[in-house]
Measured scan of single mutants.
Amino acid sequence: KLPPGWEKRMSRSSGRVYYFNHITNASQWERPSGNSSSG
């Protein structure tokens, strides 16, 4: 399961899957890690 705020999306241009955070408006190709504590 993804960390809070993150969701899986697909890029229309490349067709690749990326991850988008609707809370911080951040996007990245790598899967966000939800196990590590923020610090």
Rank of each mutant, 00 (worst) to 15 (best):
K1S: 13
K1Q: 14
K1E: 14
K1P: 15
K1V: 14
K1M: 11
K1W: 14
K1D: 15
K1G: 13
K1R: 12
L2Q: 02
L2E: 15
L2S: 02
L2W: 03
L2P: 15
L2N: 01
P3W: 03
P3Y: 02
P3N: 02
P3T: 02
P3S: 03
P3I: 02
P3L: 04
P3H: 02
P4W: 11
P4A: 10
P4M: 09
P4F: 13
P4E: 10
P4K: 07
P4V: 08
P4S: 07
P4R: 07
G5D: 04
G5M: 04
G5K: 01
G5L: 02
G5V: 02
G5F: 07
G5T: 01
G5A: 04
G5Y: 06
G5H: 08
W6F: 01
W6E: 00
W6L: 01
W6H: 00
W6V: 01
W6Q: 01
E7F: 06
E7K: 05
E7W: 05
E7L: 07
E7R: 06
E7I: 11
E7N: 04
E7P: 01
E7T: 10
E7M: 07
E7Y: 06
E7A: 06
E7D: 04
K8N: 01
K8E: 11
K8Y: 07
K8I: 14
K8M: 15
K8A: 14
K8G: 05
K8P: 08
R9Q: 03
R9N: 01
R9F: 05
R9P: 00
R9C: 14
R9S: 02
R9E: 01
R9T: 03
M10E: 08
M10R: 15
M10G: 03
M10N: 06
M10S: 07
M10F: 15
M10Y: 15
M10K: 13
M10H: 09
M10I: 15
M10T: 14
S11V: 11
S11A: 10
S11K: 05
S11I: 12
S11F: 09
S11G: 06
S11R: 05
S11D: 15
S11W: 07
R12S: 11
R12G: 09
R12P: 14
R12A: 14
R12N: 09
R12K: 13
R12F: 08
R12Q: 12
R12W: 08
R12V: 13
S13A: 12
S13K: 15
S13C: 15
S13N: 10
S13E: 10
S13W: 08
S13V: 14
S13P: 10
S13T: 13
S13M: 09
S13R: 15
S14G: 09
S14E: 07
S14I: 05
S14C: 13
S14F: 08
S14W: 06
S14M: 07
S14D: 10
S14K: 07
S14P: 04
S14V: 06
G15I: 02
G15Y: 03
G15A: 05
G15M: 05
G15K: 07
G15V: 03
G15H: 06
G15F: 04
G15W: 03
G15E: 04
R16H: 05
R16S: 04
R16T: 05
R16G: 03
R16Q: 07
R16I: 06
R16M: 06
R16V: 05
R16N: 04
V17Y: 11
V17N: 04
V17M: 08
V17P: 08
V17Q: 05
V17A: 07
V17F: 09
V17R: 04
V17T: 09
V17I: 13
V17E: 08
V17D: 03
Y18V: 02
Y18L: 02
Y18G: 00
Y18I: 03
Y18D: 00
Y18H: 01
Y18Q: 00
Y18P: 00
Y18K: 01
Y18A: 00
Y18R: 02
Y18C: 08
Y18T: 01
Y18M: 01
Y18W: 06
Y18E: 01
Y19N: 00
Y19K: 00
Y19E: 00
Y19F: 07
Y19V: 00
Y19P: 01
Y19L: 00
Y19Q: 00
F20S: 01
F20D: 00
F20K: 03
F20Q: 01
F20I: 05
F20R: 03
F20T: 03
F20H: 07
F20A: 01
F20M: 02
F20C: 06
N21F: 05
N21S: 04
N21L: 03
N21T: 01
N21R: 01
N21D: 03
N21E: 01
N21V: 02
N21P: 00
H22C: 15
H22E: 05
H22W: 14
H22K: 14
H22M: 10
H22R: 14
H22V: 15
H22S: 12
H22T: 15
I23V: 10
I23W: 08
I23E: 09
I23L: 11
T24E: 03
T24P: 01
T24L: 05
T24F: 05
T24K: 03
T24H: 03
T24R: 03
T24G: 02
T24V: 03
T24A: 03
T24W: 04
N25K: 15
N25M: 14
N25R: 15
N25F: 10
N25L: 13
N25S: 08
N25P: 00
N25Y: 09
N25E: 06
A26H: 14
A26S: 09
A26N: 08
A26M: 14
A26L: 13
A26Y: 08
A26W: 09
S27L: 15
S27F: 15
S27Y: 15
S27W: 15
S27E: 05
S27N: 04
Q28D: 02
Q28T: 06
Q28F: 04
Q28G: 02
Q28I: 05
Q28Y: 04
Q28N: 03
Q28A: 04
Q28W: 04
Q28V: 04
Q28K: 04
Q28M: 05
W29N: 04
W29H: 05
W29P: 03
W29R: 05
W29F: 08
W29E: 04
W29S: 05
W29D: 04
W29Y: 10
W29G: 02
W29T: 05
E30Y: 07
E30P: 04
E30C: 12
E30I: 06
E30T: 08
E30N: 07
E30K: 06
R31I: 10
R31E: 09
R31A: 09
R31W: 10
R31L: 09
R31G: 03
R31N: 07
R31Q: 07
R31Y: 13
P32R: 00
P32Q: 01
P32V: 01
P32M: 01
P32E: 01
P32A: 01
P32T: 01
P32Y: 01
P32S: 01
P32W: 02
P32L: 02
P32D: 00
S33P: 08
S33I: 12
S33D: 13
S33H: 09
S33Q: 13
S33M: 12
S33V: 14
S33W: 10
S33L: 12
G34D: 13
G34N: 12
G34T: 11
N35P: 14
N35H: 11
N35G: 11
N35W: 07
N35R: 09
N35T: 13
N35I: 13
N35A: 12
N35V: 12
N35Q: 11
N35F: 12
N35K: 11
S36I: 11
S36R: 08
S36M: 12
S36D: 13
S36A: 13
S36L: 12
S36V: 13
S37K: 09
S37M: 11
S37Y: 08
S37I: 11
S37F: 10
S37G: 10
S37D: 12
S38G: 11
S38M: 12
S38V: 12
S38R: 08
S38A: 11
S38D: 12
S38F: 10
S38E: 12
S38K: 09
S38C: 15
G39V: 11
G39C: 15
G39W: 07
G39S: 11
G39K: 09
G39T: 11
G39M: 11
G39N: 11
G39Q: 11
G39E: 12
G39H: 10
